[in-house]
Design a protein around this nucleic acid. Structure first.
Lengths: 108, 108
DNA sequence: TTCCCATATTGCAATATTACAATATGTTTT
DNA sequence: AAAACATATTGTAATATTGCAATATGGGAA
C-alpha cells in the first residue's frame, strides 16, 4: 500500500512520528543543524551548502514548515528561516520521556 | 525519483537520518514506547497491542532492528525484543547537541 | 517598465514504503 | 510424530517520496 495506517494510534504518537519522519532525511536534518548553528538563516545559503537543486531544497523546507519545525519570515528579497524552539523542545521532551521510562525499567 | 541522495552528506547525518526515519512511523514509535515501558518485551504482545497485522509488525520490528534501535533474543518459542540503550542514547545526544547550538544562537 | 534575483510550484519519472494474505520456519506441547 | 503456537518471509498492489527541469511569482534594481 504505501499508506501509513493511523487509526488506532494516539494523536500524540501520530504527530510525533510525522515530525520524526520529516527529520529523517539527510537534507532536512542538515537544514535543521545548519539553522541551529548559523547566525543568519537565509535560505539561499542552503542552496550552496547542500548537494541538491534549489527546487528540491524548497520542497524540504516546506515539509519542515508543514510540521512546524521551522518558520519563515519574508525579509525583502530573501526569506529568513528559523527553527521553532517550541516545537523543537516538544520533540526533545518526548525523547527524554522515553529515555526516563527506559532507565527505570530493567533490561532483559 | 524516490531515492534519497546521500552523496555530499556526512556519515553521521546519514546514519542519524536513517534512524529518525525509522522512528518516524506511528507503529514503530509505539513499539519503542511500549518496549521502554513494559517490563517484559515479548513480540506477541505487540500483535494484540497494535492495530496492525502480525506480518506488518514483524516488518516494523526488523526495520528497528536494522538500524540498531532494538535487539532481539530468542527465548524458547518467543523472541524477547529490547531497546538498545546505547543506540538510543546516541540519538538523544544528537538531539541535545542541536538543542545546545540552538540555545546559544539568538533567534531572528 | 524591464531586468535580475530569490524562492515557490508544477509536472513528471523513478524508486521506496506500507499493508496484508499466504506461506514458511522453528519450537514447544501433546 | 502431529498439533499448536510464535515469528519471519514472500508476493503483490496501492500509495508516498524524492529529485530535478521547467516555469511561475514577487520583490528590488536599473
Amino acid at each position: 500500500m504505501g499508506i501509513t495506517k493511523t487509526i488506532g494510534f494516539s494523536e500524540v504518537v501520530i504527530e510525533m512520528a510525522d515530525i520524526l519522519k520529516v527529520l529523517g532525511h539527510p537534507a532536512r536534518l542538515s537544514i535543521m543543524e545548519y539553522l541551529a548553528n548559523s547566525p543568519s538563516c537565509i535560505c539561499n545559503d542552503l542552496v550552496e551548502e547542500l548537494p541538491l537543486a534549489q527546487p528540491t531544497i524548497s520542497r524540504h523546507l516546506s515539509e519542515l514548515k508543514r510540521v512546524g519545525l521551522i518558520q519563515g519570515q519574508i525579509s525583502g528579497k530573501n526569506i529568513c528561516y528559523c527553527i521553532n524552539p517550541k516545537k523543537w523542545n516538544k520533540v526533545l521532551l518526548h525523547f527524554k520521556m522515553i529515555t526516563t521510562s527506559l532507565s527505570i525499567k530493567k533490561q532483559c
